[in-house]
Design a protein around this nucleic acid. Structure first.
Lengths: 237, 237
DNA sequence: ATAGTACGACTGACCAGTCGGTCGGCAAAA
DNA sequence: TTTTGCCGACCGACTGGTCAGTCGTACTAT
């Protein structure tokens, strides 16, 4: 982390400008194939200038990583806060936020995978810790919603922490396979299908009976044949 | 793919020897950090010799990838065949096989992630096609089991293809998060928890009522506090 | 003037892939 | 049986190209 002269704000802004450019380049080409010059070009600055703000390429990578995690975490936190007190609405909002984020960043999936690989292998524990911190944060949100759903009588009793972590894994798994499948189907539909499976299992009889026909419809129609838009189908009904 | 002299068998054996060495090195260091010399050393041969069997580093990477996929696919296929006719047993066997494979190859998770990233980015469609082929194969197995479960009256009606693909995503997601979590908990327990959630949702009332107490137990105890062995707990009961 | 900032040509390290040479084994000749 | 000659698997020093990071210069603002 080099010196930090001029105004604090200007420094941070330029740093951010570099991070933004780096995200795009890293995503398009991958960490190793991305040359510092590419990033400099994308940011409209000279290569040397990057080194005024980041000591090494690795440090820049890490900054990109942090920035991304922060963004996602903040979006989810906001979604959770907006509906505080209404667990069903919160659950919906969380899912919608996650889907939106995933769809928006589908092109970044390769770099996300590289992040994970890097984190698992790196000597620098920062990467892994950052992931676990995020899992912690999101897990806490999920567990809170789950316990509210249980308290309200909508859900049967579950270990909420386990359930929340499972959900995080499932979410990433669905996203990953959706990308690996060439975004062939509608991500919303896949999530809804998943929700129907889980919902059918965890809802208390009363709620389940209420939603039975919707669940049945989702379960029997699946998501694979949905109108394959890579994204942009805010409300597919 | 260079010439293929001597006996076919000897050629294949040496090729395999290189692949085996490469798996370990790629897994430990990652694709980019692994030098051809490392692989040569690990295989106990000279660097130049590798190029008698593989034209480029990429081609070797791809061979490693194929080998791995083949192994997994074959194991799953075998598990499915062994219990043909008994869908519940087949489902169990598939899950056990998947868990065993995942646990055995936990150290290779980073390279699996790199594979995926590479597949998504590579100009060579082989990688992505190979993944999709595997999803196809495993998906067909899963769909068959699901439809048998439905036919037998154990499961409610679902779109079996969607369900199978969802399961593949979920499996990978759980595995991924288990690894990212430092293999802190027992993978078996996580899968059982998942099964309980799904089972509770899809089982027909009769079966569900029969298994109710087991499901309740799994759902309420979760998997996060399980006796954290990274692997080796064949039957934790 | 001068301190802070930007730059990009340059350097040194690195590494995939090459290529000329070695050597063990085998078969034909002696 | 021994000698000679050949083959091709094997090797690793070397090459050519690449790129992260440096540094002397130039610009800008005060």
């Amino acid at each position: 982390m080099p010196r930090r002269p001029q105004s604090e704000a200007a420094w941070a802004a330029k740093r951010q400008q570099i991070i933004t450019a780096a995200i795009g380049e890293f995503a398009r080409r991958g960490f190793h194939a991305t040359k510092m010059e590419h990033i400099a070009d994308a940011a409209g600055i000279g290569k040397g200038t990057i080194y005024e703000y980041f000591a090494t390429k690795d440090e820049l990578f890490l900054a990109v990583y942090d920035y991304w995690m922060d963004t996602y975490e903040a979006a989810m936190q906001r979604a959770a806060d907006e509906h505080r007190g209404d667990p069903l609405a919160t659950a919906d909002a969380l899912i919608e936020t996650a889907i939106a984020f995933y769809q928006e960043h589908a092109a970044y999936a390769p770099i996300l995978l590289e992040f994970w690989a890097h984190a698992l292998r790196s000597d620098d524990p920062h990467f892994l810790e950052r992931i676990q911190q995020m899992k912690q944060t999101l897990g806490a949100i999920g567990a809170r919603v789950a316990s509210e759903l249980i308290a309200s009588g909508a859900f049967r009793k579950v270990d909420t922490a386990s359930f929340a972590q499972l959900e995080l894994g499932i979410s990433d798994g669905i996203f990953l396979h959706w990308v690996l499948d060439g975004q062939r189907y509608n991500l919303h539909d896949a999530y809804r299908f998943r929700q129907a499976v889980i919902g059918a299992g965890l809802m208390r009889p009363m709620l389940r009976r209420m939603l039975e026909s919707k669940i049945t419809k989702r379960l029997t129609s699946g998501f694979l044949n949905s109108n394959a838009p890579g994204a942009r189908s805010k409300r597919s009904r």
